[in-house]
Design a binder for these strands. Structure first.
Lengths: 228, 228
DNA sequence: TGCCTACCCTTCGTATACGATTTGGTACTC
DNA sequence: GAGTACCAAATCGTATACGAAGGGTAGGCA
């Protein structure tokens, strides 16, 4: 009865499960649902104009991806980023992103390099009046250019999942450790040089991984300084 | 480890979704549902004595993990392993397992080494009257000892997922390339020596990764020989 | 006054029901 | 005999309904 044959204008991705998944994911990533936010099935269902069943399935998928945590008979909440979780996620991301970048490298064309360099320049100018959110977004754009050609879809998927997890905290490490931003831009340049020169996969992987590990280390050092 | 015998209640893991997930996963891994097998919701539900709703959720989770493929309005089938998929999975596994092993290494005690060595000896004797299925099982046991201490749960989870994917093909590469089995046992010994000696993480990671990559390469070479 | 208990309300978990879609077979036509 | 169109069975997708589990609050008792 609710299924009006037609509705060709809305962004219906076919199944309502899928739509629910897309919608909730978007809201988590864009911050509408902040970390810790309680995801009430009925509320989301009503909001999307569907029943709870598709929403449940969407939540399950998000759970499997680690974007929400779930407790039986209690419900789902948007996964927070306690420091430990941040460490795990960054460590995993350094691993898979490093590999993805190395695997991509031979497939990265000159035009990609140009684009990446442009983004990095934008980041450099962004250093002046520093905006962590904007900087983080550019950072993601930069790396996306480098790893999106990864021919192994599993690894690429893992990279995306890692970035999604981090998306919960809107601004990443750079909010806490602005000093890291400048070094990051430099390392981007070095990484591009390596790729451009056709360095072997191992060198690129090491460089990309070290780049991310350094960000993690900066955060840890910062936490060490401020916490105890 | 995680299965503490303190819950003597019935086999129910609490929720029926969970039970369905566990049951279906087990049947895929143990080969009751072979690759390509069609998973009919109603049939599984009746078999488990529940309704279709929990089964649907279980299938969704399996889909997110890549163990089943799903087609809207058609249904789920157990994910097969076409050679391309095998390549991707092995490549990913070499990555995450290498890292997991390296991260575990400092936490591996002498008694673990003893156990691992025993398993490897069993594999060595197994070489005589070669049984691919048994050998593959021992191989998994061996590696499990080495990576289970991995302190990063994300990476550990990825390793488990990789192994689960491979479990679909009951006997792995060793069925096709029995010659690889002998080399594999040797490399296991070398890996144990490294860990025992407290080698640095990078060396261990390389060694573990190369070990798995070599298996993949052996398969690819074999495929090259027989296919064209 | 402070703590404990009992109740209620919110929210989840699962079953059942029904509409929607695909698929495979069969009959009809060219 | 081959191709196409149609029909029926199987199966999926989603809505609704109801029972169950948790958490919060008010009231009573020490």
């Amino acid at each position: 009865m609710t299924e009006v044959a037609g509705t060709p204008q809305d962004t219906a991705e076919g199944s309502k499960s899928q739509r629910a998944y897309t919608a909730v994911t978007a809201r988590i990533v864009d911050g509408t649902y902040p970390p810790g936010h309680r995801l009430v099935l009925a509320a989301i269902a009503q909001d999307l104009g569907v029943s709870v069943v598709p929403v449940r399935e969407a939540i399950r998928r998000l759970e499997a991806e680690g974007l929400v945590t779930f407790q039986r008979n209690v419900g789902a909440t948007v996964a927070g980023i306690d420091p430990t979780e941040y460490l795990y996620t960054m460590q995993t991301l350094s691993l898979v992103e490093g590999a993805a970048t190395a695997l991509s490298a031979p497939l990265i064309g000159p035009e990609d390099i140009v684009r990446a360099r442009a983004v990095n320049e934008e980041m450099r100018t962004c250093l002046e009046h520093f905006d962590p959110v904007r900087f983080t977004r550019l950072n993601q754009d930069f790396h996306a250019i480098l790893f999106e050609h990864c021919p192994n879809p599993h690894i690429l998927d893992l990279v995306h999942r890692g970035w999604n997890r981090l998306a919960s905290l809107r601004s990443s490490t750079f909010r806490f450790v602005p000093g890291r931003a400048r070094a990051s831009v430099e390392e981007h340049d070095a990484l591009l040089v390596l790729i451009e020169a056709g360095a072997d996969a191992d060198a690129i992987e090491r460089s990309a991984r070290a780049h991310r590990s350094a960000t993690l280390d900066a955060y840890l050092a910062h936490a060490q300084d401020t916490r105890p």
